[in-house]
Amino acid sequence: MTATPGDEVDRIVAAWHRERPDLDAAPLQVLSRISRLARHLDRARNSAFAKHGLDGWEFDVLSALRRSGNPYQLSPGQLVAQTLVTSGTMTNRVDRLALRGFVERSPDPGDRRGVIVALTPSGREVVDAALADLLARERDLLSQLPETERDQLTATLRGLLQPFDR
């Protein structure tokens, strides 16, 4: 009797090995797990944000502003670079966040045609609360791993991401 594979990825890889023994499915062992983990993390993150009335994209924009430091403001171009969306998408996002009172626009003193997007006190309050909840949830998720394994995983994932960040 054959041992049952350990998780869903093991079952998927075994099925591909059975159906396409001519292909090396080894990359799936790592990357399918990362993909599946990313989906689970997205659900956990969305749950943490929803508790504070935020969507994930709202948290992304607000947290980019919050991380920028006092006075918590960036140009739309800087927000685009940090959140990896198009300028049209960012315009729409800033409009929606401004309607909620989380950000405000002001003229860019260094560029007559430009604007600056600034975090409002209510935006700062909601992003700070959402971040605290998110970190607590993520800390719980990682608590299963010893610190040395977390450090190794951090280094390994950093190495995998570097080509994309260039």
Rank of each mutant, 00 (worst) to 15 (best):
Thr2Ile: 15
Gly6Ile: 00
Glu8Tyr: 01
Asp10Gly: 13
Ile12Trp: 05
Ala15His: 06
Trp16Lys: 02
Leu23Ala: 14
Leu23Ser: 10
Asp24Thr: 06
Asp24Arg: 06
Ala25Gln: 05
Ala26Arg: 13
Leu31Glu: 11
Leu31Lys: 04
Arg33Leu: 04
Arg33Ile: 06
Ile34Gln: 09
Leu37Ala: 11
Arg39Asn: 12
His40Leu: 13
Leu41Cys: 09
Arg43Asp: 03
Asn46Cys: 09
Gly53Lys: 11
Asp55Val: 03
Trp57Pro: 02
Asp60Gln: 09
Asp60Ser: 15
Leu65Phe: 06
Ser68Val: 01
Tyr72Arg: 10
Gln73Thr: 14
Gln73Asn: 13
Ser75Val: 03
Ser75Arg: 15
Gln78Met: 06
Val80Ile: 11
Gln82Asp: 12
Gln82Gly: 04
Ser87Pro: 08
Ser87Val: 10
Thr91Gly: 14
Val94Asp: 01
Val94Phe: 00
Leu97Gln: 09
Arg100Cys: 02
Gly101Thr: 06
Gly101Asn: 07
Val103Cys: 12
Glu104Thr: 14
Ser106Met: 12
Ile116Pro: 07
Thr120Pro: 04
Pro121Asp: 13
Arg124Ile: 14
Arg124Asp: 08
Val126Arg: 06
Val127Pro: 04
Leu131Arg: 15
Ala132Tyr: 01
Ala136Tyr: 06
Arg139Tyr: 08
Asp140Asn: 10
Leu141Ala: 09
Thr148Asp: 08
Arg150Gln: 12
Arg150Ala: 06
Leu153Met: 12
Thr154Ala: 10
Ala155Asp: 04
Thr156Phe: 12
Leu157His: 01
Gly159Asn: 08
Phe164Val: 04
Phe164Leu: 14
Asp165Arg: 15
